[in-house]
Amino acid sequence: MLTIDALTHSYPGGHTAVDDLSLAVEAGELVTVVGPSGCGKSTLLRCIAGLQRPTGGRVLLNGDEIRDVPDSLAMVFQSYGRSLLPWLSVRDNVALVLRHRYGSRRERRAAALEALAEVGLADAAAKHPGQLSGGMQQRVAIARALAYGPKLLLMDEPFGSVDAQTREDLEDLLLALRARTPVTVVLVTHDIDESVYLGDRVVVLTGAPGRVLAELPVGLPADRDQIKTRQDPEFVRLRAEVGRLVREK
């Protein structure tokens, strides 16, 4: 579904963030991308999203090269506080991005309420983002992304700035939503445990400039549990393996 072919991106000034990175993602897969900080993970996502034109190589979505922002793609940013529009209610934040999906405002609002109910925020629809906790704001961002009905969902360290308990809740929310919706996910994280817990496959990047160091299929059952999965020998083995790779230069 998504093919990244020899992607290279250098910023003006000479810093090369991503160098000759190739990766293929199958439809319906949840791929986690992990690597040391500054390894070009965000640059990779921005190139896939069409927010940035790579200086070399190509990104293909269903065989078509991405030149502009693809219609079938949504993204969840790390800085939820800056990604939601603070002057709109939570419901209108979700409804806004459905402008091209539904003709009438009533349909958009109904769809937005439905999406908010999916993430357990039906009661917060009338509130403004600033009135919600960080974890709730990120739920809104997830609801907004899924309401958009993307085929490909990009997540840039989505749970990086919430507390540990909230993070586990959000991880399980993502897995539950994904089990219900046929969506392909590329999730970037710097958290090794998270990359194994969430992923069908873990892609480990090298330090800057980023390229693929290893791809590890995750042999864990699809139904995951914060306590049991983390005790699974396969989880423990993979976590050690990914940890070793991330530290490797």
Binding site: G50, V69, D71, A74, L85
Partner: peptide, 19 residues
């Protein structure tokens, strides 16, 4: 980030200026 968000959701330059 707000501008990028709307861009990802398919809003053109004029729509981003307005919203």
């Amino acid at each position: 980030v707000q501008l990028d968000t709307l861009k990802v959701f398919g809003f053109g330059a004029a729509a981003r200026a307005w919203f």
